[in-house]
Design a protein around this nucleic acid. Structure first.
Length: 464
RNA sequence: GUGGUUGUAGCUCAGCAGGUUAGAGCGCUAGUUUGUGGCACUAGAGGUCGUGGGUUCGAAUCCCAUCAUCCACCCCA
C-alpha cells in the first residue's frame, strides 16, 4: 500500500473541481431538493441535456469573454493528422479544426437548442427545470469554480410579465425555505439601451453597461474615466450621473426614468415593463427586498428585457442567482418569435452561503439509525432476520461487518453519528431480546424480540 | 487574460539572519487482560521540506525557473 502510494502521482482533482464526501452530499441534496420542490410546485418539468454540445451551438452566445471560457473537447481519433503545418499558427482557428464539441457553459443555450430541435413535441408555453453541472475555464477563486451546478427554470413561448413575476416569487420562496437573507435586484435591458441612446452613444452599449456595472465598486469617477477612454464624450457620461446615483423608492425611480426617457420608444417600453412588473410584485405580496438597480447590467449578451440578480445579504460572494428575458435566443437556431425568461440558482454558492451563515439543518448529518454490533457467529445469525424486519419498517439499520472489538465498533458508530447501537449476543439470544443503547445518553434498554414492532416507541424512551 | 499570496507528515502549521539524525498539535495504528465507545496513559508508523536548476565546504532556509494553490481584477452562478 505505502509503496504503491509512493510510486503514484499525488492524487488530486483538476483545477477548480471538487469531490463531495457524504456530509457534503447530504447538504447538497438538501439544497437541490428544496429548489426542486419549489420548481415542481410551480409546474415546471425536468429535462436533461448532454454535458457536451456541438461547439457551434455554444460559440458566440456568451460574448467574447464567454467564448474564451468554453472548455473545448478534442476530437477523438487522430484530430491532428490532417492539419497542415501552416494551420498550427493560428491557435484559435486550429482549435476549431480539432474540437467539434465543448462542455456546456450554462443551461440556457442548451435549452434553446433543445426547444428548437424538439419543437414539434413541445407544448408551449414550455416550462422546464434543469439541474445539472456546467463548466467554465475561469480562474478559480472564492465562490468561483470550474465545475458547478446550476438550477434553472425557464418559460419559453410566452412574453407575459407574469413569468417574470413567477421568477421573483420562486426566488423569494426558495431562499426563504433555505433561510438565506437576500436582495433581489431588477433592471431592464431596454432601459439600458435607451440610456446609451440618451447620452448619444447607442453603439457603445456594451462599454456603457460594463462600466455601469462597476460604479458600485470603483465609484463614479473611475467608471467615468473608463467610459471616456472607450470614446464616450465627457458630457455624455455626465448625463448619466444623476440617473445612476438615483435613489429613492422603486416608484420614484420609475417616475424619474419615464421623464428622462420620454423621447425614446424602447426606453418607455422598458420603463413600463418595469412598472408593470413591480405592480404585479406588489399584488403578489413578494416585494420585500426587491429593488430596481440601474447599475445591474448582466453580461450575457442574449438578454433583451428584464434582468435579475439575487445577492446574499450576509455573505460577500457575488450573485447566487441570476437571469432575465431573452427575446430571440431560439432565433439563432432557426426558430424565431419565441420569447423566453429564465432564472438560474447557483447551488454551489448557495452552499457556501449556508455554510458561512451556519444555516444547514442538523438533520442533514443523519445516516444510519441503528448499528447492530457484530457479536460473532450465532449473534450474526440471529441478527440477520432482525435487519430485514427493521428495514421493512423503514428504519435505516446496518450490521458491522467484522467481529472486531466492541471499542472499535463503538468508535465507528460515533464517528458516523449513528445514534443507536444494538447488541444481539449469547445473553440476548438466551433471553430472546436485543439490547439497545443510545450513544449520546449512554442509557440502555432490553427489547423482547416479539415486541420489535414497537421499537420506535422504545427508542423514544431512550432519548429521555 | 492581468496582479499578488502560499507550497514542510493524512490535516493545520512551526522551523528559515544556511550548519550534525526535520518538529508540534490533531488524525492514524497497536496496547492499558477481546460484552460497552467518546476521556486518560504508553508505544509506533508516516516527510527525498512542490519540482528542476544555481550559489555554497554545506540549502527546508539564499537566487532563478517551473508547476500547483489561494486571493483580487476581469467575468459570472
Amino acid at each position: 500500500m505505502t509503496t504503491i502510494l509512493k510510486m503514484s502521482y499525488k492524487a488530486s482533482t483538476p483545477k477548480g473541481t471538487r469531490d463531495f464526501g457524504p456530509i457534503e452530499m447530504a447538504r447538497r441534496d438538501y439544497i437541490f431538493n428544496t429548489i426542486r420542490d419549489s420548481f415542481k410546485l410551480y409546474g415546471y418539468s425536468p429535462i436533461e441535456t448532454p454535458a457536451m454540445e456541438n461547439l457551434s451551438t455554444l460559440l458566440g452566445k456568451y460574448g467574447e469573454e464567454g467564448d474564451r471560457l468554453l472548455f473545448k473537447v478534442l476530437n477523438s481519433g487522430e484530430p491532428f493528422s490532417k492539419i497542415a503545418p501552416e494551420e498550427l499558427e493560428d491557435s484559435n482557428a486550429l482549435s476549431l479544426r480539432v474540437c467539434e464539441k465543448g462542455l456546456r457553459y450554462d443551461l440556457t443555450v442548451p435549452l434553446a437548442r433543445f426547444v428548437v430541435q424538439h419543437r414539434n413535441n413541445i407544448t408551449f408555453p414550455f416550462k422546464r427545470y434543469q439541474i445539472q453541472p456546467v463548466w467554465r475555464a475561469d480562474r478559480p477563486q472564492k465562490g468561483r469554480y470550474r465545475e458547478f451546478y446550476q438550477c434553472d427554470i425557464d418559460v419559453i413561448g410566452s412574453d407575459s410579465l407574469l413569468n417574470e413575476l413567477e421568477m421573483v416569487q420562486i426566488a423569494q420562496e426558495i431562499f426563504k425555505k433555505l433561510g438565506v437573507a437576500i436582495t433581489i435586484k431588477i433592471n431592464n435591458r431596454k432601459v439600458l439601451v435607451a440610456l446609451s441612446q440618451y447620452i448619444g452613444h447607442p453603439d457603445k452599449l456594451i462599454a456603457i453597461t460594463t462600466a455601469i456595472d462597476k460604479i458600485e465598486k470603483v465609484g463614479f469617477n473611475n467608471a467615468k474615466s473608463e467610459l471616456v477612454a472607450a470614446g464616450i464624450s465627457e458630457e455624455g457620461v455626465e448625463m448619466l450621473r444623476p440617473i445612476l446615483s438615483l435613489s429613492g423608492s422603486n416608484t420614484q425611480k420609475i417616475a424619474f426614468l419615464k421623464e428622462i426617457l420620454s423621447s425614446s420608444t424602447v426606453g418607455l417600453e422598458g420603463v413600463s415593463e418595469l412598472e408593470e412588473l413591480f405592480n404585479l410584485i406588489e399584488s403578489a405580496g413578494v416585494g420585500e427586498s426587491v429593488e430596481i438597480d440601474l447599475s445591474l447590467a448582466r453580461g450575457l449578451n442574449y438578454y433583451t428585457g428584464a434582468i435579475f440578480e439575487v445577492k446574499a445579504a450576509q455573505v460577500e460572494i457575488g450573485s447566487i442567482c441570476g437571469g432575465g428575458r431573452y427575446d430571440n435566443l431560439t432565433g439563432i437556431f432557426g426558430l424565431p418569435g419565441l420569447s423566453g425568461v429564465g432564472i438560474s440558482f447557483g447551488a454551489d454558492r448557495i452552499y457556501d452561503v449556508l455554510l458561512a451563515t451556519n444555516t444547514f439543518p442538523p438533520a442533514t448529518n443523519l445516516s444510519t439509525q441503528i448499528l447492530f454490533a457484530n457479536m460473532g457467529g450465532e449473534g450474526v445469525q440471529a441478527t440477520l432476520p432482525l435487519l430485514s424486519k427493521l428495514r421493512s419498517m423503514d428504519i435505516t439499520v446496518e450490521l458491522f461487518p467484522n467481529n472486531d472489538r466492541l471499542r472499535k465498533q463503538f468508535d465507528y458508530a460515533s464517528k458516523r453519528a449513528i445514534p443507536y447501537i444494538a447488541f444481539v449476543g449469547s445473553r440476548e439470544i438466551e433471553d430472546g431480546e436485543i439490547s439497545l443503547k443510545n450513544l449520546k445518553t449512554g442509557s440502555e434498554i432490553k427489547l423482547p424480540i416479539e415486541e420489535l414492532d414497537s421499537i420506535k416507541e422504545k427508542i423514544e424512551l431512550l432519548n429521555l
